[in-house]
Design a protein around this nucleic acid. Sequence first.
DNA 1: AGAAAAATGTTAATTATTTCACAATGTTAA
DNA 2: TTAACATTGTGAAATAATTAACATTTTTCT
Lengths: 206, 206
Amino acid sequence: MKNLPHKTIERLSQYRRALLLCHAKGMTYIYSHEIAKIQHITAVQVRRDIMLIGYTGTLRKGYNVKELIDLIGQIIDSKEGINVCVVGIGNLGRAITNYFSGKRTKLSIVAVFDVDKGKVGKKYHGIECFDLADMTKIIKEKKIEIAIMTVPGEDAPMISDMLVKAGIIGMLNYTPKPVNVPKEVYLEEYDMITSLEKVAFFVKTH
Amino acid sequence: MKNLPHKTIERLSQYRRALLLCHAKGMTYIYSHEIAKIQHITAVQVRRDIMLIGYTGTLRKGYNVKELIDLIGQIIDSKEGINVCVVGIGNLGRAITNYFSGKRTKLSIVAVFDVDKGKVGKKYHGIECFDLADMTKIIKEKKIEIAIMTVPGEDAPMISDMLVKAGIIGMLNYTPKPVNVPKEVYLEEYDMITSLEKVAFFVKTH
DNA sequence: AGAAAAATGTTAATTATTTCACAATGTTAA
DNA sequence: TTAACATTGTGAAATAATTAACATTTTTCT
Ligand SMILES: NC(=O)c1ccc[n+]([C@@H]2O[C@H](COP(=O)([O-])OP(=O)(O)OC[C@H]3O[C@@H](n4cnc5c(N)ncnc54)[C@H](O)[C@@H]3O)[C@@H](O)[C@H]2O)c1
Ligand SMILES: NC(=O)c1ccc[n+]([C@@H]2O[C@H](COP(=O)([O-])OP(=O)(O)OC[C@H]3O[C@@H](n4cnc5c(N)ncnc54)[C@H](O)[C@@H]3O)[C@@H](O)[C@H]2O)c1
């Protein structure tokens, strides 16, 4: 299941989120146009994505919610699970830690790091905060593969280098400072100001 | 300057962010490949984006940093400035309010709203928190056009409807619950779990 | 039973975005 | 003064993503 388009991967994650809610409400089947409605996209797009992962629904009945959830899991989750850490437990780091905890069994935040001695040793949503100085050691001990960076922008390049040296293979950078990583490391960056400016621009142009 | 690709708009915002840093450091000219390096993209892409906004650099000297910053501003900022509000001043709302304040003169967070009476009346980074019950009134009074939602997911649809009725024309939804808005309202949604799952997926497939 | 309706699955067409390739031209160095 | 070089600007090609169109199948209705 290699060559899935990037956009399809994003949508599969979103479908699953929506499907989990539907499943919790007791729905057993769902139509492509119902999924589409939730995600503000077209039904064809949903069907195409589902086709790409090789699932087939039942004609006139739609897709089996539980089966689809499980299949999406097989595609996007890694079997053994992946350990994640958050670096910088300020407002954003706490929001993320809080939001993620317990949401996905295959992705667990298992450590947070900070330089602030007042934070080291404390727990955030059940996850222990370690001293930045011990980061490399803990990343190896706990087999952490993905890092989320929420430190001040000016420290991002330095922390990024440390994370790469410690063996991280995926990074999510929420600081406003783009970082450089070797090509073996998968990097995703997101900045809220860019999103807001985009909204502001398209608001003007209807 | 209508038909700029969505992706170009996002990148222009990112270029400006980078250029502002360069300008602050005293750089007066910058090459396309230098901008490209910062953003992890190709120099051609940078040149094409700049071409699309009708700016031309100086051969072998690159682009004038200040001029380019100003031109990007003319394209993506609205002349009069836009007022923004944040609904739900929890961890994420505070992180956003903190991060945005003073960053962009043309986009100002001028109010935050919450239901928690303990928060109403307090100031967050200099911005007053109002009672949700007064939201419609305040949005009109303060001419707020864009809203950022950081309330619990289950309240998102209700708050979204209220915001639309109050006259909002752009919305940034950070709750995990997709919302429906009329087509006149420009909506952007972002979920960190989707980003993290994407990283996890591509980490597996090199 | 047969016709109409409502879905899925998929090929082909379209649209959006990125990259290639290279002409044009100013700069540096011999 | 000329050759080599470095950089911009852009048409054309390539790639990626979305949408249209429709055959197919199941269900429902008459
Ligand atoms: N991407 C976005 O959309 C977005 C939104 C909000 C904030 N931000 C950025 O996220 C980062 C964090 O924002 P915040 O509001 O949580 O800030 P914050 O100041 O509340 O938190 C920063 C935390 O990092 C810690 N820290 C500082 N230096 C460190 C280091 N070298 N190593 C480890 N920890 C360190 C601090 O002790 C603090 O706990 C900032 O860079 C901010 O600009 C990004
Ligand atoms: N998109 C993302 O990546 C991301 C990341 C983290 C959190 N989240 C989501 O953002 C939201 C906020 O997260 P948080 O960590 O700040 O939560 P939080 O509980 O710290 O904050 C929620 C705030 O909203 C207020 N609130 C509750 N109901 C309200 C209502 N009806 N109207 C106005 N205010 C109301 C609460 O009083 C509180 O101040 C949640 O939906 C969470 O799932 C999203």
